[in-house]
Computed example of a mutant assay.
Amino acid sequence: MDANKNKSSFHQLKRRYAALLAVLIIGGTACAALLTLASPAKKTQPQDVQLPLVSSTPLVPIDHQTTLSLSGILKPAEQTDVAFELSGKIAWLNEAFIEGGIINKGDILARLDPFDYHTQLLNKQAELALAQAHLSEQIALADVAKKEWAHSPHVTELALRKPQVASARAQLKAAEAQLAQAEKDLARTQYYAPYDALVTQRDTGLGQVISAGQSLGRLVNLSYAELHVPVAQFERPFLPVLPVPNVKITAENVHRTGTLVRHTGQLSDTTRMAYYVIRVDDPYALHSAMPAVYFGQFLQAQVAGITLKNVLRVPQEWIKNDTFWLTSPQQRLVQYSANILRQEHNYIVLSAPPLSDHQVVTHLPDYPQTGMQVRNNLTHTQLAVKGEKQ
């Protein structure tokens, strides 16, 4: 009985092991089939890194001639208060001798009544004739005395009438001087314009009796004018040696030229600016076909300054916090401190860095960093040609 029970347990255990073995065989076969049917895994390919894109232009140092933009008010360079040196009555006035009138050099502005001075001239002519006659008389008497005293060993100069002759000569010279003075006074009854002039003031009228030195009016010189322009202290080092010719002067559609001639020697109390003077010849265009400019008119001037050697002239937006970016030959970003020399309009002039194999970045990526690898979209922007005047 026990033998049959043990035999039955053995068979059950044997069947369990056989079933487990079958399951393992089937599972292994299925795994092998799956591995065989499955496609081989693709190898992972490294992805290409997209480098930041920049734009740049060649770094080309230039010689740049600076330009100073100045402005000021046109003023008279010279003015004269008109006055006679004599007293008398105004007998005639030039029609142009009114405020705003233009007088040419040598034109008569006014005349005094010449009667008194003409009469004085005739009197001095008569006195001169008497002095000449008196001298002739004394010379004749001296000749007679010389003959009378020819054999006398002791004769005085008085006896020979030498003092009388000398006195007559002196009287003649005095008469000649008085006649010259009378002629001059008669000529001074007419006042001639000393230069081409604009009448800015008249203080007399026809028939008015004036005293010597009394003002008749005021003239300003139209031969040339002066444009007084302030120059900031930081701009003065860029001025060349004076005088500076061919200064371009503009006002609306008017174009003229002038010469920067001098410094006034003064600084403004408020702005501390220095004042310079630009000479403008024939401002009212009396002797040329150029357009006229007028006293009190606001004018702008462009002065050619000194030439800066080995510099860059770049747009202002390329400079940030006094630095700008370059790309090295290895296409890496390089940040460079800018030595800014001056600013002209929307451009910056700075010392060129000693990196001729680098390029100036005109367009940066969003977050630039020194040493960042970039790819360059080289532009064809030309900074300037060496020696070009900007």
Score class of each variant (00 low, 15 high):
residue 7 K to Y: 06
residue 8 S to A: 14
residue 11 H to E: 12
residue 14 K to Q: 10
residue 25 I to D: 10
residue 28 G to C: 15
residue 36 T to N: 09
residue 49 V to I: 03
residue 51 L to S: 01
residue 52 P to T: 00
residue 54 V to F: 09
residue 56 S to Y: 06
residue 71 S to D: 11
residue 73 I to F: 06
residue 78 E to T: 01
residue 86 L to S: 00
residue 88 G to Y: 00
residue 92 W to S: 06
residue 94 N to G: 04
residue 98 I to Y: 02
residue 122 L to R: 03
residue 124 K to I: 01
residue 132 Q to G: 06
residue 132 Q to Y: 04
residue 134 H to R: 14
residue 139 I to R: 13
residue 149 W to T: 03
residue 151 H to W: 04
residue 151 H to K: 05
residue 159 A to R: 08
residue 159 A to N: 08
residue 163 P to T: 03
residue 166 A to G: 09
residue 174 A to T: 02
residue 175 A to Q: 09
residue 177 A to M: 05
residue 185 D to K: 09
residue 186 L to C: 12
residue 187 A to L: 15
residue 188 R to C: 15
residue 189 T to L: 14
residue 189 T to P: 15
residue 192 Y to D: 00
residue 209 V to C: 07
residue 209 V to M: 08
residue 220 V to E: 04
residue 223 S to G: 08
residue 228 H to Y: 07
residue 239 L to W: 07
residue 248 K to S: 08
residue 249 I to S: 12
residue 251 A to L: 00
residue 273 M to P: 12
residue 282 D to C: 07
residue 283 P to N: 11
residue 283 P to T: 10
residue 286 L to Q: 15
residue 297 Q to E: 05
residue 299 L to S: 02
residue 300 Q to K: 01
residue 303 V to L: 12
residue 308 L to W: 00
residue 314 V to M: 01
residue 316 Q to V: 07
residue 318 W to S: 11
residue 320 K to F: 05
residue 326 L to T: 06
residue 328 S to L: 05
residue 332 R to E: 03
residue 337 S to V: 07
residue 350 L to R: 10
residue 356 S to A: 05
residue 360 V to C: 15
residue 362 T to C: 13
residue 363 H to W: 13
residue 363 H to G: 14
residue 366 D to G: 13
residue 377 N to S: 11
residue 390 Q to R: 13
